[in-house]
Write a protein that binds this DNA or RNA. Structure first.
Lengths: 234, 234
DNA sequence: AATGTTATGTTTGGATCCAAAGTAGAGCTC
DNA sequence: GAGCTCTACTTTGGATCCAAACATAACATT
């Protein structure tokens, strides 16, 4: 997958994420290849990849169409990430933290503390949090004993709204995001505490709940209604 | 994906599953295309699909290699299926069973009861069980409110050892498999009971445990040692 | 003798060509 | 006027060709 092949996949992924192609819209190989300025071959390859990622789906025998996601899909994708990261955390607690991992987690905890210590959020802090958050999650998932869990999470994260670093949405209302990140920080610290004490079930549940932070916590923190509060009907 | 394209993917998947290519072996596009009697194009498309499925992985800049799986990977993949199916079951219990789904699950419960009623297993019963088992799991996962969970499970099941219908391994020792299926049947019935009573947490845990049946239960049932008993070290 | 450089061969990526399958539209028949 | 059929066009799949990148090996130089 040279630069161009990879770039076609990510460029298409970006375009779909931005809504450049409406949900359910059919994507023709020729049309896309002309738009991206490449031949049909890399586009065909990219379509197969994006199909597996779940962003495209087959439109009968006539190529691919953009997959459309409902609110329930978004909620479910977040929940899937929650249970998978929870699984990783539980395994980690059960097998015991290595000294190296313990130290690494401590770094990201401290980084978060320092980031939030001044009591408010600046523009560049958002990226810094995103960074440390990614490292924190990757450290846990990557140490779960097998890449299989991480792979499953990575595949799930291809749905743009499911990824862990989609926490911070509103980079303009920094004062409101601050309280959210404070809570996330507490959750991070609790997770590490549970991991250190070998409390597998607790670590799992904390991690699960932590996944919802971008989704359900808005209302509680006075950030406007989130998704997923309505009682799911049958 | 016409017959040929699809067939290349599934033929390759089969060949890899059978171990025709050793773990870690590099797969050249030309070599494979000659072996399968097609041109390079469908092989290149298939490689991308199989990469996403996790059966192949990139070998640097030089094409793809067969991914190798450790015992820990197998265990983890089964555990991943467990938590995902557990998630589906919990959601189902929380939102309540529809009448149609209740009836369908009852069908598969009854089918299983009748299959095991005679007290022993015949050769053709293995396929019958595999069939009803698949229907049972698909019914639950497919009714979880969003295809996202099912997709995640499907992707996980691309690892051949992770799928739910890989329960019955030894189709020659039918008497030993019988006790395993008896237990699986009980677990199915307990899951349905929990679902009907809206016991989300119980349904989730039962479903999780059920995933292990092909893996850890061999020893308990006198079928020889299974995988995953050893205490995982750090 | 060891190391750096060059040249050749192997392999993947991209573009184009051809064939096959499907769809839509027009025309014909009942 | 409705329905069927045949034709033309659109679109995807497969094969082949060309270019670029990488690896290996041979050769030259210090």
């Amino acid at each position: 997958m040279s630069n161009s092949d990879k770039s076609v996949v990510s460029r298409l992924r970006k375009l779909i994420g931005e809504g450049a192609y409406g949900p359910g819209e059919r994507l023709g190989e020729v049309a896309v290849s002309e738009q991206l300025g490449v031949s049909r071959t890399p586009v065909r390859l990219a379509f197969r990849t994006l199909e597996q990622e779940g962003l495209l789906q087959r439109a009968g025998k006539r190529g691919f169409m953009v997959r459309e996601f409902t609110e329930a899909d978004v909620f479910c994708a977040v929940e899937v990430r929650g249970v998978l990261e929870g699984l990783a955390a539980r395994r980690l607690a059960e097998q015991g933290l290595s000294q190296a991992l313990d130290a690494e987690l401590e770094v990201w905890i401290q980084t978060g503390r320092e980031l939030l210590a001044k009591g408010f959020l600046e523009e560049r802090d958002v990226d810094a949090w995103s960074e440390l958050n990614r490292h924190f999650h990757e450290a846990i998932v990557g140490s779960a004993g097998s890449p299989v869990i991480g792979d499953a999470i990575a595949r799930n994260n291809h749905l743009p709204f499911a990824a862990a670093d989609s926490i911070v949405i509103d980079s303009e209302a920094l004062d409101r995001e601050f309280r959210k990140l404070q809570l996330a920080q507490v959750q991070h610290e609790l997770v590490v505490q549970a991991l250190r004490q070998g409390e597998g079930a607790r670590a799992e549940m904390l991690m699960r709940e932590h996944a919802f932070i971008g989704l359900r916590y808005g209302e509680l923190l006075g950030l406007g209604p989130g998704i997923g509060h309505e009682r799911r009907g049958r």
